[in-house]
Design a protein around this nucleic acid. Structure first.
Lengths: 116, 116
DNA sequence: CATTTATATAACAATTAATTTATATAAAGG
DNA sequence: CCTTTATATAAATTAATTGTTATATAAATG
């Protein structure tokens, strides 16, 4: 499984995005991350493992506690891939076939056809 | 299911990312998208539906052909969410607890402990 | 019109993912 | 040491995803 598969897949879960949002405020231990959600500790532990595998968080061990924080690596990797789409969108913005596409599409919907 | 769930989930598949990469070069019909992959046409059609649902592509109908192109909407939405992580990372970059975390982590690994 | 071309949908099998409960490990604290 | 606290792992269940083949639809074309 490709890195990006794992990373995007990790981000597709709302609980994991919420965990990341929480970690954006600063690091937190596993139990601190369990509290705000109505999930069990094992469930959160597994979500953390997924995030860790994706390179989106890192953990250290401090006694019995394992504080987590955001990891730059995975986030940067995702960002680099998306950059491709971003530039494609701005690049295509003024290209002829795009403009023609819009025009044709509009002409059709003026005639009451479905665009879906 | 949240929009971002759908969008990130759509991006987690390598075939779909390849389709988006292809569309970054300009629009393409379904059959044009089938060719480069060793998947059947129904499989690609389903991937396209997933991408469309995620707001990552749009299609128009032109006779029997349905050319696809990148959609700004879904990509922008993903981008807005990631912005949160990006700023958190740069914001936390020079924060005390981060630095302390690094230090402690280093001290431990100097003593031969595992960081994973 | 009948046929071909382009695409979508349905039904099904195989795989993968998310959750729970129960249990294991490992450090801390009395 | 024994207990508590913090976390991880295993097993089982359920649900969702991805692919296939077979079939449907709908516009183009001879």
């Amino acid at each position: 499984m490709h890195n990006l598969d794992v990373a995007f897949s990790a981000l597709s879960d709302p609980t994991r995005r919420a965990i990341l949002a929480r970690l954006a405020l600063g690091e937190a231990t596993v139990m601190e991350l369990v509290k705000p959600f109505e999930l069990t500790q094992p469930a959160i532990s597994r979500h953390l493992k997924v995030l860790e595998n994706a390179g989106l968080i890192v953990r250290r061990v401090e006694g019995t506690k394992h504080p987590c924080r955001l990891a730059e690596h995975g986030i940067a990797e995702i960002d680099r891939w998306l950059e491709m789409l971003r530039t494609a969108l701005t690049r295509n913005y003024d290209r002829l076939d795009q403009v023609l596409a819009e025009l044709k599409s509009e002409m059709k919907s003026d005639r009451g056809e479905e665009t879906r």
